[in-house]
Design a protein around this nucleic acid. Structure first.
Length: 490
RNA sequence: GGUCCUGUGGCCGAGCGGCUAGGCAGUGGUCUGCAAAACCAUCUACAGCGGUUCGAAUCCGCUCGGGACCUCCA
């Protein structure tokens, strides 16, 4: 039934059959956010993509350890030589402690992802919590002769590494091409080659986020944290490493080089890269200001939108595109997704009210097999959704008596739709509310519908329309069907 | 400048050598007191020019758009 999962490996640049290193166990590391400002919607797309991947792996029965880091130190704001830690800069601006900034944006990040119904990772390590591990790795790399110290800073020697390994293996770049692209804008660089990258940076006097090390009071380079945390929690070689497209080079390339220098073996079997979410056709980016914040999207409080959107609609919108394709954000596209989302969820919810027959007019197994074949082909959620809409059509036909479904098939279908809609796609909002407030609401609506029914039987259209219009204004829609009147929120 | 990706109908977005993608919007119908929903039918495509092939959105070349990375960014 489930067949085999194929996924696109950036390392080989082709789709490969997924075979975890340790049969049923999967280790997955995803590069997390830098917590010095609010996460924007573009960041969210990557995390939602990997949330979907995580969910599907779990659905297939794998025992997954999902690690996603929080980068709370070490990113340089200017060039590599005269850099200032981003977190420090912001802290000074706002006159608060660096860790206060980190805390604030970490909490914000978690809130947003919860809104999007993303499952938290199993381990969410922080860079500042793993300074010692990073130092240990740097020491080992130096002892291998693949890094050198200059004035208290340590740099990775890319040329030396490239003698026995392949720097550029992931991004398919050649050292020569990279060199031709470097501008000699800094004559005073400490680095032997422009391609060398920092493993440890000596802190300038005003730099307040600093740690003691064998080389200087300083802070770790940008790439080393991921190697430290991934190897610590997932081992020297693990299955999946994910992140946004923009991290492929240099970040992931450097990670491979470091890790290989450290352990002597390739760290990752499958590299997965989620593509960017664009706004006005351009990449969302903190630095250029071309961003949209999730909160603005939910509330509609932005010139880009005429109204806000439910986080689940946004998630559905993202799932309608393949995770490796660029997706452009627009108000019109969101509106279309909102309708489609409701159509899907309404049918899903109506499953419980379906009348069953002796026989099914369609083969439930074909519908279900289609879900798996879509997802097994590199997590093709747009195809999955197209296939789900085929099922929606079937459900709707059963509703109006143009198709049938047997009891056994209905149970089977319900189980799989739960798994794919709620489980894999992570969409909520289709299940019947089952709390006290909702029960009372049901009771109230029953009364109102009964009153309106009486009015309609008396051909008192004024009253019946008044009820319907008032409810519509209150955000409750009324539908008169052959089976009676139903209502729904929104 | 270097490396790479991409251009699909009104909009979004799959497909990547032959078979209706799907959603939204539009049009005509069924149903309905009206409306909504649903159902049925239906209309708009593969940037341009060449080439390969029995056959090309799909492969190759060129041209013209758009984008990413090469510097922090999911």
């Amino acid at each position: 039934m489930t067949k085999e999962l194929k996924l696109y490996n950036s390392l080989s640049a082709e789709k490969e059959v997924f075979k975890p290193i340790h049969s049923n166990y999967v280790g997955m590391y995803v590069c997390g956010p830098t917590v010095y400002s609010d996460v924007h919607l573009g960041n969210c797309r990557t995390f939602i993509s990997f949330d979907m991947i995580y969910r599907y792996l779990i659905h297939l029965g794998y025992k997954v350890r999902y690690v996603r880091n929080i980068t709370d130190a070490g990113h340089l704001v200017d060039d590599a030589d005269e850099g200032e830690d981003k977190i420090v800069k912001k802290a000074r601006l706002e006159q608060v402690e660096p860790m206060e900034i980190v805390q604030k944006y970490t909490v914000g990040f978690h809130d947003i992802l919860r809104n999007f119904n993303a499952i938290p990772p199993n381990i969410e390590p922080t860079a500042t919590g793993h300074i010692q591990e990073q130092i240990n790795i740097i020491e080992k790399i130096i002892s291998q002769g693949l890094a050198y110290e200059v004035n208290g800073s340590v740099y990775f020697n890319v040329d030396k590494y490239n003698e026995t390994a392949d720097y550029g293996i992931l991004s398919k770049r050649k050292i020569e091409d990279l060199m031709s692209g470097t501008r000699e804008l800094d004559g005073q660089s400490e680095k032997k080659s422009p391609l060398d990258f920092a493993l440890w940076k000596k802190a300038s006097p005003e730099h307040i986020m600093r740690w003691n090390s064998p080389w200087s009071d300083g802070f770790p380079g940008w790439h080393i944290e991921c190697t430290a945390m991934s190897t610590k929690y997932l081992g020297e070689s693990f299955d999946i490493h994910g992140g946004g497209m923009d991290l492929k080079f240099p970040h992931h390339e450097c990670e491979i080089a470091q890790a290989q220098a450290f352990t002597g073996k390739p760290p990752v079997k499958y590299w997965l890269h989620a593509n960017l979410l664009t706004l006005n056709g351009k990449k969302m980016s903190k630095s250029t200001g071309n961003t949209l914040l999730p909160d603005e999207l939910f509330s509609g409080d932005t010139p880009l939108l005429e109204k806000g959107f439910d986080p689940m609609v946004v998630r559905f919108f993202m799932m309608q595109a393949h995770y490796r394709s660029v997706l452009d954000f627009s108000y019109d596209a969101l509106l279309a997704s909102e309708k489609g989302y409701h159509k899907l969820m309404t049918a899903y919810k109506d499953l419980d009210k379906l009348k069953v027959s002796e026989e099914s007019s369609e083969e439930v197994s074909k519908h279900i097999a289609a879900y798996y074949s879509a997802m097994n082909d590199d997590f093709n959620t747009p195809i999955l959704i197209a296939n789900l809409f085929d099922t929606v059509s079937w459900i709707n036909k059963v509703k109006v008596g143009q198709a049938t479904i047997s009891k056994a098939d209905l149970i089977e279908l319900k189980k799989e739709l739960d798994a794919f809609i709620t489980g894999v796609l992570g969409l909520t909002g289709g299940q019947a509310e089952n709390n006290d407030g909702a029960n009372k609401m049901d009771a109230v609506m029953e009364v109102i519908i009964e009153l309106r029914k009486n009015a309609r039987e008396n051909k008192d259209w004024t009253s019946s329309d008044l009820i319907r219009d008032s409810l519509t204004a209150a955000g409750i829609s009324i539908k008169d069907t052959k089976e009676g009147t139903s209502w729904s929120l929104n």
